[in-house]
């Protein structure tokens, strides 16, 4: 596939973020090509999660622009960004623990199908139709991620690996064009990691662009098309897995402190 001809789905320009004088990100520029998997790596405190939070609208950057499909989104609230087609998972699992597996995924459909207070309260046929539609979509997603058997279990009763998968499923239910996965393999054993990696590939195969933060280098090298390396809030390298593997600055950033 000729990737050069493809458009950028995400374009980050000159993004900086300071917290009370502390520089978390400085002058960051990068793009994510449509239909690819891009990984963001870097030591702890490199600013990866801050970057995710900016892209998904938890807070606006101090400086710079973030464009999604050529439109600036850096000042939009999180829910508006979700409506535009970016969905995410969280580093520390943020499932709706008071809901079942199915309800969690149904919640993910909120970006596509929603009902008003009044029509739900009066149970208008419209809202009933929508609820059925949400249910169908959620079931489809659950079968895709392999949790079709556990739909009625409370979300917090699942094993950690399944919770991570469920969170990805919930993000998929919003039919995003870009999913941001914050450490999808953190805390998983080898089998679970394998399941997660295949799922991410399968998502990508559906044409969804993936941006992920991950510490597990095996996963990163295995599935990403491109890698962005951050250190102390700055980009120190960007390129293909092979290129990054041999980049001296990356090796220094990871090993320098300890050597």
């Amino acid at each position: 596939m000729n990737r050069l001809a493809q458009e950028h789905v995400l374009d980050v320009q000159g993004v900086a973020m300071t917290f009370g004088g502390l520089m978390a990100l400085s002058n960051l520029n990068f793009q994510v090509k449509k239909g690819t998997i891009k990984a963001v790596i870097g030591p702890n405190g490199a600013g990866k999660t801050t970057l995710f939070n900016i892209i998904t609208g938890s807070f606006p950057p101090t400086k710079g622009t973030v464009k999604f499909k050529d439109e600036p989104i850096e000042n939009l609230k999180a829910h508006k960004i979700a409506d535009r087609g970016i969905s995410r998972t969280f580093q520390t699992i943020e499932l709706f623990s008071n809901m079942t597996v199915l309800e969690n995924v149904m919640m993910g459909c909120h970006t596509c199908v929603r009902t008003s207070f009044l029509s739900s309260g009066l149970k208008l046929p419209r809202s009933h139709r929508k609820e059925t539609e949400i249910l169908d979509r959620a079931m489809k997603v659950l079968r895709f991620i392999g949790l079709g058997e556990k739909i009625n279990e409370p979300a917090d009763s699942l094993a950690l690996g399944e919770q991570k998968i469920l969170e990805i499923g919930r993000a998929l239910a919003s039919e995003p064009e870009l999913v941001c996965l914050d450490e999808p393999a953190a805390g998983l054993n080898e089998t679970e990691t394998h399941v997660a990696s295949s799922l991410i590939k399968a998502i990508n195969a559906k044409g969804i662009t993936v941006l992920l933060v991950e510490h597990d280098m095996k996963v990163v090298m295995n599935i990403s098309d491109e890698i962005l390396v951050l250190n102390y809030g700055q980009k120190i390298a960007e390129g293909t897995p092979e290129g990054i593997r041999n980049n001296p600055r990356v090796i220094e950033a990871y090993l320098g402190g300890e050597a």
């Binding site: 609230k77 829910h79 919640m107 909120h110 970006t111 993000a171």
Partner: peptide
């Protein structure tokens, strides 16, 4: 945070 990430 999760609710708003779901478009709520």
């Amino acid at each position: 945070p999760a609710a708003s990430a779901m478009g709520v």
